[in-house]
Structure formats: structure tokens, C-alpha cells
Write a protein that binds this DNA or RNA. Structure first.
Lengths: 191, 191
DNA sequence: CTCATTTCTTAACATAGGTCAAGTGTTTGA
DNA sequence: TCAAACACTTGACCTATGTTAAGAAATGAG
């Protein structure tokens, strides 16, 4: 199998070849063009997406009309609005491709059925959310207590690939600062 | 059963009375006095704790010696350092009781065994972490994009009980501001 | 009941990062 | 292929929140 999804499930759980096939069959492959939107506010998020190739971002627009990016994801990551997906209620987020991308998607009903058919999947997602939660708390601590410069440096260290592929405006927003500030930080660094 | 843990598991999963008993037996009940510590930096977090009564906080100390609170939890919540617990590596956090409290605790090995014995528990924790992750992202967005005043007002609306039971110094840190700032915010409000 | 400690408030001053405005490259799509 | 849209930078100025320092109020242990 050419994608990493099955690879990760296999890594974290005991799963039979047969069940792997069930999982694989439950996902649909889709291709999206750069700038194509997978979700807009008001719509309910029908799918969660595993990225096999490409890059996507997710953001919301505040009352003043300013965009705030809360996720940037590359291949082998998941993207969705989980709150909308799991509650099956309208989302406040956009999801859009930053590059032409290839995705695996699964719907809410299909996933619920699959949890029952393949209990290892429940374990996989338990571990996935556990890690995601720990990461989110780390990002929270860093946003609350580190300076913009430190956050920039950390991201440079840990997600260098994102800087090569994603416009700085989006990275600035993801870091919680303005593009102007990011520009100044980068200027200082080079000296 | 007098505590809410089984209640929540029952609410989110299909679990038999027999398996409920297995879960119940796997947890130990402990009592802690106000100011008693359950975890200090350098130690590995041996347990996750479900609070049946009381209040606890968790924090870390930065290189300048400043305390940063990242969790405040009341009864019917969980508290732990998940990163240390799941990796079984040393923690950088403190956990301490803010009031005399009663807790249910389970060790890493015991929990891993219980997942196998009671698959519904895997589902319970999958849903728990899913919700926790969604909350952490909400808190992140609010920290990044809302003013301290808005964060204070939201917390007042959603966690009024915490204000009645926890010193403001801790709440300020949890909100990502100094006690002085919180004091100013509260003063303005009353006018 | 009382002294020590903890918690909270206030004020003067400092600063990181935001805002506004303008300008220069660089893609992109008709 | 060339205008329009996007991406990035720079500078002058502004503001929310931090820092430092002090004191008042509340709480708690002996």
C-alpha cells in the first residue's frame, strides 16, 4: 500500500491484514486543486481527511473580518474540523488546499461503523487524539508564555518544510502574530 | 456507585455491568490534603487521576523561575501529565491539590491491561481525548486572538465555580496574564 | 486572638507587538 | 504577455499588557 495511513495504524495497534483491507476500503481517495475549499463556515464537516500528498490550511474569520489560521497540515497529517465533524453541526472554519493535494477521506457514519467493524481503529484514534491533545497543550503553553521570536525559532526547527512551502502570511497567523511582525523577526535574524 | 466516572463511561459507550465492575476495581481511591503534591518535575507521572471531590492545579516553572499554570481541574475532571504518563518519561510539571480532595487513580500498566480487558474503555478514552483536543484548540484560539478582557469574561461565564474556589493568582496564570492585569480587568468591570 | 503569610490591589513606568500606510517584488490567469 | 492580485518589507506611531514596588485586606496556624 502506497500511503502511510495503514503504516501508522499498524505501528500503534495489532491489526490483521484482513482488517487493514477493511480500513483501506472505507476511505475514498480524492484530488483537490490549489485554493479548492473542502469546508466553508455554515456547512457541516462531512469528512475527516488524511493527506497523502500536498498541504492544506484551516482558518476562521473574526467579527472584524480578520483571518486566523489554526491549522497548517502537510502529507501524512489529518485535517478536519473535528468539532463540527463529531457533533455533525455547522462549522465556523474554512479548509482549503495550499497546493494541489491528494487526500483520503471518510464520512462520519462510515467511521462510526468502522470503529465497530475494526476495534483496532478505535485504539488508533485514541492514541492519535491523545498525541494531538498533548501537542495542542504544548502549542498553548508556547503561545501563552514564549515570545514571538522563540515561537518562530521553534517552528523553524521543528517544521522547516512548512516555511519552504507555505506563504509567510499564513505562518504568521499560525504563530499568532501579524505578517509585519514576522517580517521584522526574520530581518533581525539574518543580521 | 457514588462517583461520576462510571456514569460518563456508560453515557458514551455500551458497557456491561460486569465490565463496569472491572473498571471500578482497577481504580484506587485516594485522599489528598490541600497543598499536597501528586507530581513534581523530574518524576515520571505514574497515574492519571479522576477527581471525585476537590480541586487541583498543574503548572511548570520556566527558566526565570516563574510559575505557569496550565490546568485547573475540579471534581469530575481528569488531571495528569499525559505526556509523561504515556511516554513513562520524566515530567516537567507539578500537580498539587488546591483543596482537600478525593481522587480515583490508575497506573499506566493497569490502564493498558484494562484497555484489553474492557474495549469500551478504549472508546471512552478515544472520545475523552477527542473532546479534550477540541477544547485545547478552542483555548489556543482564544489565547491567540482574544484580548485578556474577553478571555476573562468567557471564563467567568463558563467556569464561574472556579472563581469562587481558586485564588486569582492561579486564574490569572491560567488565562495567560499577570495577577496585576487581572486585578485591573476586574476593577474596570465593577464600575 | 494575634502575628505571619498569603492574596489582592494600585500606581508609575517600560516594552513587545499591533496598526496604518506606503512601496517593491513576484505570481497568475485572461 | 501584461495587468491585477498576491506576497513581503519597512517605518512611524500606538496600545495592551508586563514590570516593579508598595501597601491593604484576608486567611490561617499556634
Amino acid at each position: 500500500m502506497e500511503n502511510k495511513l495503514i503504516y501508522y495504524i499498524r505501528k500503534w495497534t495489532d491489526i490483521t491484514r484482513e482488517k487493514e483491507a477493511d480500513v483501506y476500503k472505507a476511505f475514498e481517495t480524492i484530488s483537490v486543486k490549489k485554493k479548492q475549499k473542502l469546508l466553508i463556515p455554515g456547512d457541516t464537516c462531512k469528512y475527516i481527511y488524511f493527506i497523502t500528498q500536498g498541504a492544506l490550511r484551516s482558518w476562521f474569520v473574526d467579527d472584524k473580518g480578520v483571518e486566523h489560521i489554526y491549522q497548517i497540515r502537510l502529507e501524512n497529517g489529518w485535517i478536519s474540523d473535528l468539532e463540527s465533524f463529531f457533533s455533525q453541526r455547522p462549522s465556523k472554519y474554512y479548509i482549503e488546499a495550499l497546493e494541489d493535494s491528494k487526500l483520503l477521506r471518510i464520512s462520519y457514519e462510515r467511521l462510526e461503523a468502522l470503529y465497530i467493524q475494526v476495534p483496532s481503529l478505535e485504539r488508533y484514534f485514541r492514541i492519535l487524539f491523545q498525541k494531538a491533545y498533548i501537542n495542542a497543550l504544548e502549542r498553548l503553553n508556547s503561545t501563552m508564555w514564549e515570545s514571538a521570536v522563540d515561537r518562530y525559532n521553534n517552528m523553524m526547527k521543528e517544521n522547516k518544510d512548512i516555511f519552504q512551502r507555505v506563504p509567510l502570511v499564513y505562518i504568521a497567523s499560525y504563530l499568532g502574530i501579524t505578517p509585519e511582525s514576522l517580517s521584522r523577526i526574520r530581518k533581525k535574524r539574518q543580521v
